[in-house]
């Protein structure tokens, strides 16, 4: 579980996060949603430790990140997997080598064991064997995302962060990636935090949703509760499209 308490973050006097508190539970998909520029990416990067917060607490199962020494942060990061918006696969390595990379850096397994683990992770994300030895630039965006997920879970992380996992993907591939993240979270009992503004994802896998508006937490709930909330800012965001307006109407009627 990750607990965020009273977090503040400013950049050159611009107050981006204002007293944000939230709890991200283990074994479910936690989502941070909000408009572009609302501060959700800053919140996620602050939780990971890529941004140093001005004030507050970020506790990983009781361990407060701002109090940690660099060496402790590096140990913590070995428990963290991250799926980046642009996949962030290493260009100079093949698909298989990308997944083996964290194992080679941090595990004491033999080469055969590492290869076996990497193959297991890649097959777990339904990647075909023929793609294993291709360069990241030679595979599609959806496949790159799957490889990135495989790399993120290679070291069996306790915490998984996904930054805009569906960006640039078609709806069908997005759904596959969403379900994959959902299954991995439940199967391996991971604390997963997903940063998204894709409402399809929210409705598909949003088990714990935190809505950030103008740097503040404006709402927290799940995908079923979101239809019945009387929060103008949230409704403006969630039901911006006609499709979801109609979904809400039919949901309320039923």
């Amino acid at each position: 579980m990750i607990e965020v308490k009273n977090v503040d973050k400013s950049f050159d006097g611009n107050h981006v996060l204002k007293d944000v508190s939230a709890t991200f539970e283990t074994g479910i998909t936690n989502m941070i949603i909000g408009q572009s520029g609302s501060g959700k990416t800053v919140l996620m990067k602050s939780i990971i430790g890529l941004h140093r917060i001005d004030h507050g607490e970020i506790k990983y199962d009781g361990r407060n990140l701002p109090d940690m020494h660099m060496s402790e942060i590096r140990i913590l990061r070995k428990e963290v997997g991250m799926l980046f918006q642009g996949s962030a696969l290493f260009d100079s390595l093949s698909v298989l080598e990308n997944v083996m990379y964290p194992l080679e850096m941090f595990s004491s397994s033999t080469k055969e064991e590492m290869t076996e683990r990497a193959r297991f992770c890649l097959s777990h994300v339904n990647l075909e064997e023929k793609a294993f030895h291709l360069a990241p630039s030679e595979i599609s965006g959806g496949m790159q995302k799957r490889v990135a997920i495989a790399r993120a879970i290679a070291l069996q992380p306790k915490y998984l962060f996904c930054d805009e996992p569906n960006s640039g993907l078609d709806p069908k591939t997005s759904l596959i990636i969403d379900r994959l993240i959902y299954e991995i979270t439940h199967e391996f009992n991971i604390t997963t935090i997903i940063n998204s503004h894709d409402m399809n994802s929210v409705m598909e896998i949003g088990e714990n949703i935190i809505f950030i508006n103008n740097g503040q937490k404006a709402w927290q709930g799940n995908k079923n509760e979101i239809f019945h909330v009387n929060n103008q800012k949230l409704n403006d965001f969630v039901f911006a499209s006609n499709l979801y307006k109609k979904v809400r109407e039919s949901n309320q009627q039923s």
């Binding site: 990971i48 890529l50 942060i73 590096r74 140990i75 913590l76 990061r77 070995k78 963290v80 991250m82 980046f84 918006q85 642009g86 962030a88 696969l89 290493f90 260009d91 990379y101 964290p102 850096m105 941090f106 962060f161």
Partner: peptide, 18 residues
């Protein structure tokens, strides 16, 4: 620089790599 802007360096840092 390309590794930086494509978040590959962030990926290394998140893994705990210097």
């Amino acid at each position: 620089g390309t590794m930086r802007i494509t978040e590959q360096i962030d990926a290394l840092e998140i893994m705990g790599v210097n």
